Lab assay of single mutants.
Amino acid sequence: MFYPNSPQTSPQLTQIPYGQQYAMMQRQIQQPYHPFATTEPQARLYPYHYQGPIQQEQGGFITQQSTAASPQYVQMRVTPVDQSIMSGYPNQTANGSSSSSFNYNIHPQQQQQQQQQQQQLRHHAMPVGSVPLQDDRYRKQLIVNYLAPDVTSTDLHELFSRFGELDGARIIYDKQTNMSKGYGFVYFCHAEDAKEAVERMSGYEFHGKWLKVGYSTNPLNIVPSNSSPYVHAGSRGAAG
């Protein structure tokens, strides 16, 4: 039997160049792979992502010199942007860049009308829970959420009447099932009393439920100042 490094198959040491006398086997001759043993700084910083320098080929596509990437890492192929796409944008300079302001050559009167329309939209648009300043009635009506099913309009009136005089209180019921929808409205005579009720009743436990109280901004629920107070009856038909 002959071994790869046996004296019968191995040459004389004098015939082997210096430095390879003890590297006779194939696994010894093959050098191990060192990912950080390279002179390129990109490979030292990113050993798993770097795959060699990027070269520009004919046709405008950018390719990489090395083989496919590892399945664990996804390499994105980048193509140059066609400058003709950006030619339609206004205020574009000769080098292809555009300024931040756009001039669509709008007539001054049209621009003024658009600004007025935007101001009107901001004036009428009102986020949930906010209180408008032009109508004091919005500051007097509250919406009470997360009410228990057994709470009546009379219970709601008695709960909030300790903060001040009320114009009314009612629970909203479903017309088909005649069941409470879980929320109601309270109408105060003074805005200061309503503000105190919002601050003190939010998070209050009532009939096993934690109440959420806020201003009601729905104009359909506003009680006119010259109208008669609501009837605080315990029956659902009268309260709904």
Rank of each mutant, 00 (worst) to 15 (best):
residue 96 G to E: 12
residue 168 G to R: 05
residue 133 L to P: 11
residue 207 H to K: 02
residue 148 A to H: 08
residue 187 Y to F: 00
residue 87 S to M: 02
residue 107 H to T: 08
residue 157 H to C: 12
residue 228 S to W: 09
residue 36 F to H: 01
residue 32 P to R: 01
residue 21 Q to N: 03
residue 173 Y to W: 04
residue 30 Q to H: 01
residue 69 A to D: 01
residue 202 S to E: 11
residue 89 Y to A: 07
residue 154 T to R: 06
residue 28 Q to C: 03
residue 103 N to M: 15
residue 158 E to S: 08
residue 165 E to G: 09
residue 154 T to I: 08
residue 64 Q to P: 11
residue 60 G to A: 04
residue 176 Q to P: 06
residue 216 S to E: 04
residue 96 G to A: 02
residue 6 S to T: 10
residue 199 E to F: 00
residue 102 F to D: 11
residue 226 N to R: 09
residue 225 S to T: 02
residue 133 L to V: 00
residue 190 H to G: 06
residue 219 P to Q: 03
residue 5 N to C: 01
residue 210 W to F: 02
residue 152 T to C: 04
residue 234 G to A: 08
residue 75 Q to M: 15
residue 36 F to R: 11
residue 83 Q to N: 07
residue 161 S to K: 03
residue 109 Q to G: 09
residue 100 S to A: 11
residue 189 C to Y: 08
residue 134 Q to W: 03
residue 124 H to V: 10
residue 35 P to H: 06
residue 180 S to P: 07
residue 93 T to W: 15
residue 190 H to V: 08
residue 211 L to F: 08
residue 81 V to F: 15
residue 101 S to L: 15
residue 55 Q to R: 12
residue 19 G to W: 04
residue 191 A to N: 06
residue 133 L to I: 10
residue 200 R to F: 00
residue 10 S to I: 10
residue 78 V to C: 01
residue 226 N to K: 05
residue 73 Y to C: 13
residue 13 L to I: 02
residue 5 N to H: 02
residue 107 H to F: 07
residue 18 Y to D: 10
residue 99 S to Q: 06
residue 83 Q to P: 09
residue 57 E to F: 08
residue 140 K to I: 01
residue 30 Q to S: 03
residue 164 G to E: 03
residue 173 Y to C: 11
residue 113 Q to W: 10
residue 70 S to F: 14
residue 175 K to E: 03
residue 181 K to M: 11
residue 58 Q to R: 03
residue 9 T to Q: 01
residue 26 Q to V: 14
residue 121 L to G: 05
residue 57 E to H: 13
residue 76 M to W: 06
residue 62 I to G: 04
residue 64 Q to K: 06
residue 95 N to H: 14
residue 37 A to E: 01
residue 216 S to I: 09
residue 65 Q to M: 01
residue 12 Q to R: 06
residue 179 M to L: 06
residue 87 S to W: 15
residue 65 Q to K: 10
residue 72 Q to C: 09
residue 52 G to S: 12
residue 136 D to P: 01
residue 173 Y to H: 05
residue 109 Q to K: 13
residue 126 M to R: 02
residue 60 G to F: 13
residue 45 L to G: 10
residue 222 I to K: 06
residue 234 G to H: 10
residue 195 K to W: 05
residue 40 E to V: 11
residue 223 V to P: 04
residue 184 G to E: 06
residue 216 S to Q: 13
residue 156 L to W: 09
residue 75 Q to Y: 05
residue 178 N to K: 11
residue 201 M to T: 05
residue 15 Q to F: 07
residue 83 Q to E: 01
residue 230 Y to R: 13
residue 207 H to S: 04
residue 57 E to C: 10
residue 33 Y to L: 07
residue 168 G to Q: 01
residue 43 A to M: 12
residue 117 Q to I: 11
residue 113 Q to D: 02
residue 11 P to R: 01
residue 179 M to G: 13
residue 151 V to A: 06
residue 217 T to M: 07
residue 194 A to S: 10
residue 189 C to G: 07
residue 14 T to Y: 09
residue 103 N to I: 09
residue 208 G to K: 13
residue 193 D to G: 04
residue 179 M to S: 05
residue 125 A to E: 13
residue 49 H to E: 05
residue 47 P to C: 11
residue 83 Q to R: 05
residue 69 A to N: 12
residue 174 D to Y: 06
residue 114 Q to L: 07
residue 230 Y to I: 01
residue 95 N to R: 10
residue 20 Q to I: 10
residue 201 M to P: 10
residue 61 F to R: 04
residue 129 G to I: 05
residue 168 G to C: 15
residue 169 A to T: 11
residue 16 I to N: 15
residue 75 Q to T: 08
residue 238 A to R: 00
residue 125 A to F: 13
residue 166 L to W: 14
residue 237 G to P: 03
residue 237 G to F: 14
residue 24 M to A: 14
residue 94 A to M: 02
residue 38 T to H: 05
residue 115 Q to E: 12
residue 223 V to W: 13
residue 129 G to L: 03
residue 201 M to G: 06
residue 69 A to C: 00
residue 114 Q to K: 14
residue 8 Q to Y: 06
residue 136 D to Y: 11
residue 151 V to P: 11
residue 106 I to N: 13
residue 35 P to Q: 08
residue 40 E to P: 13
residue 176 Q to V: 00
